[in-house]
């Protein structure tokens, strides 16, 4: 494989974490415009820990995930009782606040004789842990997909368990779920924390893949993209969001066939697709059909 293909494949994997975090909230009935914030929190936290304080990447990733979970939990606490567009706007406001705080965030530390670290709008360069430790791009690719596989197995297992039924219940009809004794607020807060951790993990991996991040990376465009990935891929299974990312980055960017017109083609495709499949390609009915067919 050439470097270009490896880069595209790695990106598909990275953004799948973000799409999965949007998907989790959608399944629980909430539309977030703000997942990019926790992706950004993960990227900054992970980058600071490895590049400035010499932490090993796995430890930094765990810390970043904890921070991402905490951040989304705290944002969710006052907002998860809001419904529909109110919640979407509250998450958008929170995410834009995070982005502006990244712009105001300066944490310069001397490292090997020169200043390094986040420098406001100038961004944060030199997140070079994987290069300093001699990790080849192919190995990083395998690492990303191994982590993604673990997360997917976990999500599939959860969806088949009682917990999965609880989450779908909360998403489809919160009043009904509450009437059978489910604590809706608690369930949604749990989902929010998990979504924050997932987005942050994607962010750590993104920062170390790119070696450079800046506040502009984490704007509303990224957030709505992840929402779109989850929705076009389908809300029936955790594989849906992956399909969404694959369609966008993989098919269109990978082939370069639509070079220059990519968003015009993709945008039209998405809008037309949603007319016929408003819950995505792999929606609940499709998943059921596939299961019947192959079991």
């Amino acid at each position: 494989m050439d470097d270009y293909a490896i880069g595209v494949l790695t990106n598909i994997g990275l953004f799948s974490f973000l799409a999965l975090s949007a998907y989790l909230l959608l399944v629980a009935g909430e539309m977030s415009f703000g997942q990019q914030a926790f992706f950004g929190v993960g990227a900054y936290a992970g980058g600071i820990l490895t590049a400035l304080y010499g932490w090993p990447l796995p430890l930094a990733a765990l810390a970043a995930m904890a921070l991402g979970a905490l951040a989304q939990f705290l944002v969710g606490l006052p907002t998860l009782r809001l419904r529909g567009l109110y919640f979407a706007m509250a998450t958008l406001a929170a995410a834009e606040m995070f982005r502006i705080l990244f712009e105001l965030f300066h944490w310069r530390v001397e490292r090997n004789g020169e200043l390094a670290g986040p420098d406001g709008t100038q961004g944060f360069r030199g997140i070079r842990w994987i290069f300093e430790h001699g990790i080849e791009p192919v190995h990083y690719l395998i690492l990303v997909y191994a982590l993604l596989a673990v997360i997917l197995l976990l999500l599939v297992w959860v969806e088949r368990s009682r917990l999965g039924a609880v989450l779908r219940g909360v998403g489809l009809d919160p009043e009904l779920a509450a009437s059978v004794g489910i604590d809706v607020q608690k369930a949604k807060l749990g989902v929010a924390a998990a979504a924050g951790a997932l987005a942050a993990l994607g962010g750590v991996l993104y920062a170390h893949h790119n070696t450079y991040i800046e506040p502009r990376n984490f704007d509303i465009m990224l957030g709505v993209h992840s929402l779109a990935y989850a929705l076009i891929g389908g809300l029936g299974t955790a594989f849906g969001p992956l399909l969404g990312v694959l369609l966008d980055i993989g098919v269109l960017e990978g082939t370069r066939f639509f070079h220059g017109y990519r968003m015009i083609v993709f945008g039209g495709l998405v809008a037309v697709l949603l007319v016929f499949r408003p819950r995505g390609l792999l929606d609940e009915r499709m998943v059921l059909w596939i299961r019947r067919r192959f079991s």
Binding site: V224, L227, L231, G267, L269, V270, A271, L274
Partner: peptide
Amino acid sequence: AIAAMVASFALWMQFEE
């Protein structure tokens, strides 16, 4: 409602490009 909103975002991308 979510499908409509995401579809409108898709067209946003079209206009911008």
